[in-house]
């Protein structure tokens, strides 16, 4: 799996990514995903990453980037 931009979060990211990939291939794609099994691991990784994003000043850039993605949400979140 790929690295995190914050090396101190690599371990937490690796644990979460591994869990996600298993959930995605064994449950989500088979249509039996009622809950996200990896939520607790994601929370740990996210709180680590959040600090790094703030320190590097990326968090404010992200807010702008998010605003730009609303258009694609409207287009791609429609039921098929």
């Amino acid at each position: 799996m790929s690295a995190s931009l914050a090396p101190e979060c690599n371990e937490k990211k690796e644990r979460y990514d591994t869990c996600f990939l298993k959930w995605y291939s064994e449950k989500f794609l088979r249509g039996i995903a009622s809950t996200d099994d990896c939520e607790p691991l994601f929370k740990e990784y996210k709180s680590c990453l959040g600090k790094a994003l703030k320190e590097q000043g990326i968090d404010t850039m992200l807010e702008e980037a998010r605003a730009d993605s609303r258009e694609s949400d409207a287009e791609h979140m429609k039921p098929s």
């Binding site: 790929s2 690295a3 995190s4 931009l5 914050a6 979060c9 990211k13 979460y16 990514d17 996600f20 989500f28 995903a33 996200d36 994601f42 990784y45 996210k46 990453l49 992200l62």
Partner: peptide, 11 residues
């Protein structure tokens, strides 16, 4: 590509 970080995820 030196890093890929997941920021949010939901179904």
């Amino acid at each position: 590509v030196i890093a890929v970080d997941t920021l949010s995820r939901s179904v």
